[in-house]
Design a protein around this nucleic acid. Sequence first.
DNA 1: CTCGGAACTT
DNA 2: AAGTTCCGAG
Length: 422
Amino acid sequence: MRKPPEEAGPVLSAVGGASCWPPRGPASFPLRPSSVPASLSFILCLPPQQCPFPARPSRGPRYPPRRPCTAAAWPRVPPPAQAATGSQIQLWHFILELLQKEEFRHVIAWQQGEYGEFVIKDPDEVARLWGRRKCKPQMNYDKLSRALRYYYNKRILHKTKGKRFTYKFNFSRLIVINYPLWEVRAPPAPHLLLGAPAPFWPALLPMGMPSELLHSLLLAQWAMVEHLAGQQTPRGLPEAAEDKMGSGSGAPRLGSLPAPFQPGPGCLLGSPRDEPPSLASFTPPLLPSLPSFTPPLLPPLPASWTHLSGPFLPHVPPEWQSPGTSKPDTLLPGPGGPPVTRPFPGLPLVAGLGQGAGERLRLFSLRPQGLKVKACPMIGAQGRLDPREAFSSEIHRPKTGDKSPVSPQLGNFKAVWPLDPP
DNA sequence: CTCGGAACTT
DNA sequence: AAGTTCCGAG
C-alpha cells in the first residue's frame, strides 16, 4: 500500500525565477551555448527553460497531484519535449543534454578517457534538475538511479563497477532505439552505401520520425561523435577491450566495432542484431534547402557541419570524395598512428552524398505522410524569438496553404535560426 | 552505494 | 512504455 497522496504546496510561485535555466538569466544567456555547435542546435531545438519549481523542494508525499506542467507551468513557449501533449523527455536524453552543456560540467561530465562513460559529480543536483524537468519535485538520486538501472536491461546504459556514480552509455543501442522502424527505399549508388567510407553515406531518415526522436537521435549521435572526437587516442576506442571482458550482453556497441571507426549509419545500424536498414524500395528524395541558415563557428563538429547553408549538403573534403582513396584510418589512428587533427569528416545524418548526388540531404521513408518536421513551438507565430528562447532553430515547412504532398523543391524548407535577419 | 522487485502513475 | 516511489538485500 502506498501512502495516499497529500496536497503539495504551490509550485508555480517560482515561475520566472532567475536561478533556474538558463543559469545566468536571459540577459547573459548566450544565443547558443558554446558547448552546442550551431550546426547541431539548428536541428536540436534545445530550449532554455523556466523552472516551475522551487529551487529546493522539500520532502513531500508520493505521487503528489499533477502539476500543470504545461504552458502554464512553462511560461512562454514550452519546448517540444515538454509540450503538453507531446511525448516526454527521456532520462537518457536529459542526461545527454546535461553532458553537452558546459554549465553543468560540475554536476555531470564525461569521464575522461572512457568512451561513453560519464560521472555524476553531484547526484543530488542532477536529480533536482531531472525532477524539475519532469515536474517531480520529490525526485532524488535514489529514484533517478532506479530509472537509470532500468536502462541496464535495455542496454542503453550500464554501470561502471567500482566507480561511484559512474555510468556508461551504449550509443549504438541508443541510436538503434531511435530508429524503431527503419526502412529505406532504393539505395543510392551502391558505392555510396557499401564501398564508400561512412562520410559518404547519405542521411537516411525515416519520415514521420517524431521530432523528439530526431532530436534524441541527433543528440545521441552528436554526443557520441563529440565524445569520440575528444577522445581520439592512439589506443583507439577503449570500449573494445571492455567488451571482451563480458560486461556487455551481446549488444553491439560502437566500441566493439573493428577499427578504424567510421561514424555513419553502417556503424550505428549495421550490426545483425540491430535491425540493419532495409534497402527494399524507393521514395523520391526530399530536397530541403536552407537558404536562411548561416551557421556561425563551431569547433567540435566536422567541418562539413559548417557548410549547411544553401544546399543541405556538408562539404566533403576532396580527400573524402573518392571511395577508393579514402583514408579511414586517419579518423581514429591505430596504435602508433599519427595524432589526428582533422575532425570527423561527417556525421551520419548529414553525411555527404557526394557531389554527383545532387548536394542535398535525403530523407527517405515508406510512410505516406511525407516529411514530418515538427515546428519548434518556441518560434512564435510572429516569427520572433524570445531572447531566452533564441537557442533554438529547426527545419520548418513553409505555410503555403497548399496541402499537396511535400514537393521536392529546394524552397520547401527553411531553417530558422535566431540570428536570421527578419 | 548499488541492485532489482513490486506497486503505482502518466 | 517509461518512469516514480519504496524498500530490502548485498
